[in-house]
């Protein structure tokens, strides 16, 4: 085979690396990447500088003397309103808000989606329409009625109240997400399970759940980032002791007393952003796993 001498074109067509298409493609990608990375770079280097160095004004230059003091201060010493124990308090508040909110909202929404997709009960379409309509109502409209509702239930300014609020507001989009995913699973699996005598919960836990890892990962990413980054509900439905990290960050950055400590502000902001970033990097790979492989014809 290797002895054959071809004349004319043969094998893969040679391509130049620097052709107009690649220049456009990579040029655009590089510009877009810079757009996001330059501010991040400025934040990281500023958070590692001391105040005298910041005052010199070279915001793009790397730190001459690397110091982690701003990070320590942001975490445990910075004053947020009345308390001067840094972001650590807000961090744990945010954790205790986010974990139950994410679990409750995903548990309920996945069951909603499963029921809507597979058990077409009477009124399912009306229910679904109302739920989706809810996704388009601006939050601000509902702030005050919810304050009253929480007050009447005795949950206003409590973490559990905020958890309920987050769970409810996550419901429309998550239900839509799960419904569409369960609809895309082969209907015959559901039928087979019914013939095999599995009931509503049996099918959900033993057939649907094990096949739904990708969509659960998507839902977790959505909810963790959404709830962790929430500021509005956090500031309205809790009190200073229970403020989530985002509210505390705002209080640090926007404090009007004393010197503006840019390095501490940058460190505090980065600390606040670490959790969603971590979730994204850990779970990103699970997106591409094809869990339904082998269920149907292949």
């Amino acid at each position: 085979m290797a002895d054959v001498a071809f004349s004319g074109p043969h094998g893969p067509k040679p391509r130049r690396i620097l052709n107009p298409r690649n220049i456009m493609l990579y040029g655009t990608l590089i510009v877009v990447t810079m757009y996001y990375l330059v501010p991040l770079y400025v934040m990281v280097v500023t958070s590692l500088k001391g105040m005298p160095e910041i005052r010199m004004g070279n915001i793009f230059s790397p730190p001459l003397e690397v110091t982690f003091e701003p990070w320590v201060k942001a975490w445990s010493e910075a004053c947020t309103g009345l308390n001067c124990d840094g972001l650590s308090r807000g961090f744990w508040n945010s954790v205790t808000i986010t974990i139950p909110s994410v679990l409750v909202s995903i548990a309920i929404a996945s069951i909603n989606g499963y029921a809507l997709a597979n058990w077409r009960f009477k009124g399912a379409n009306v229910f679904f329409t109302i739920l989706i309509f809810g996704a388009f109502i601006p939050y601000q409209v509902m702030i005050y009625p919810i304050v009253i509702m929480l007050r009447e239930m005795g949950l206003y300014t409590k973490l559990s109240g905020l958890v309920i609020v987050h769970s409810i507001f996550g419901m429309p989009i998550l239900t839509l997400l799960f419904r569409n995913y369960f609809t895309s699973l082969p209907e015959e699996l559901f039928k087979a399970a019914r013939v095999d005598g599995a009931g509503f919960w049996g099918i959900y836990f033993r057939i649907m759940l094990p096949m739904s890892l990708p969509i659960f990962v998507v839902a977790i990413i959505l909810q963790v980032t959404g709830i962790w980054n929430d500021f509005l509900f956090g500031v309205i439905y809790t009190k200073p002791d229970l403020y989530p990290m985002t509210v505390q960050l705002n209080n640090i950055v926007n404090s009007v007393q004393g010197v503006k400590e840019y390095n501490v502000n940058m460190a505090a902001t980065l600390l606040t952003g670490l959790v969603p970033l971590f979730i994204y990097f850990v779970s990103g790979k699970l997106f591409v796993r094809g869990v339904a492989a082998g269920a149907v014809k292949g």
Partner: peptide
């Protein structure tokens, strides 16, 4: 209910439970 009718059904797309072994599929019902 389908399971109470004394029927067994075979589907076009096989509809095997992907997360279970063959043995698990056979014994699920």
């Amino acid at each position: 209910e389908p399971s109470e009718r004394g029927i067994g059904m075979v589907f076009q797309s096989y509809a095997l439970y992907p997360q279970m072994t063959v043995e698990g599929n056979l014994s699920f019902g």
